[in-house]
Write a protein that binds this DNA or RNA. Structure first.
Lengths: 136, 136
DNA sequence: CTAGATCCTCACGTCAACGTGAGGATCAAG
DNA sequence: CTTGATCCTCACGTTGACGTGAGGATCTAG
């Protein structure tokens, strides 16, 4: 399969695929004329790479993890890398969840205001508190 | 309060605070000599900014939201901005959750391998599938 | 056989949130 | 009064994952 098709089916740009190769994430054969030739499996591989990119992993971190997908040989280091990244993702999810909840709080306040713009100044302190747990 | 103390108490760098001011996120008074003077409330404000940064909002997006924190006046546009950002954060949480679950899957496989390295090649296909729902 | 689509390799541009000196003024304590 | 800590304003550097031409070769449908 050629690069354009892989890009289309994996939902990434052609440039991105060249970049992935540059980073060692995807290896492509070459046709006699120099065009890249990908196996079918490349599509899934690229989707996996995208999954990890979306989770904030760097190409270097992804490069560390990919060998496991190829060989399924789990050295202790590999297991550590996997659990480390999982932990990092958890931390991010927590941070995002906090931000999400905070915004939800503000959205409730906004809705409250839209219902009665005049009388809402009484709950003005709510916006400032609740950032840290209400003990001070 | 001076910039060093705010930085310390909010858990950010001095440079970051100057950058926030440059972006219009935090307004600081100046002492006669030109040193920035922050009110107590700046600490909470900066923490809030950090919360949104951690959720992937740009300084521009944060700048759109901050007026609500100051005035608690919710125009329809403000409500939309808030709900839009909340939606964006949800999408990110979902992506992170997918990556998290996928890693967990791999970690299970790795643990399985560590218990019996020889007999695990039978489940080699598990690594390739399950990326998209198993219908093909 | 020819044109339009697709591919190739450089290689510089981008964007955001700061980091990192350079060079100098100001502040707080002894 | 002095010295070390803290502050100021430029202003260039950094990092990562690509975007975006430039200039040219190759492929494919009619």
């Amino acid at each position: 399969m050629r690069i354009g098709k892989v890009a289309e089916r994996a939902g990434v740009s052609v440039r991105a695929l060249r970049y992935y190769e540059e980073q060692g994430l995807v290896i492509a054969d070459r046709s006699p004329s120099g065009h890249r030739q990908y196996p079918e499996s490349a599509v899934e591989r690229v989707k996996f790479i995208q999954l990890l990119y979306a989770a904030g992993l760097t190409s270097k971190a992804i490069l560390q993890i990919l060998p496991f997908l190829d060989t399924l040989v789990a050295t202790p280091q590999m297991t550590r890398r996997l659990t480390d990244e999982r932990a990092r993702i958890r931390v991010k999810i927590d941070a995002l969840t906090r931000a999400h909840d905070r915004l939800e709080e503000l959205i409730r306040l906004a809705a409250e205001y839209e219902n009665s713009p005049a009388t809402c100044s009484a709950s003005a302190d709510v916006a400032a508190s609740h950032t840290s747990p209400p003990r001070h």
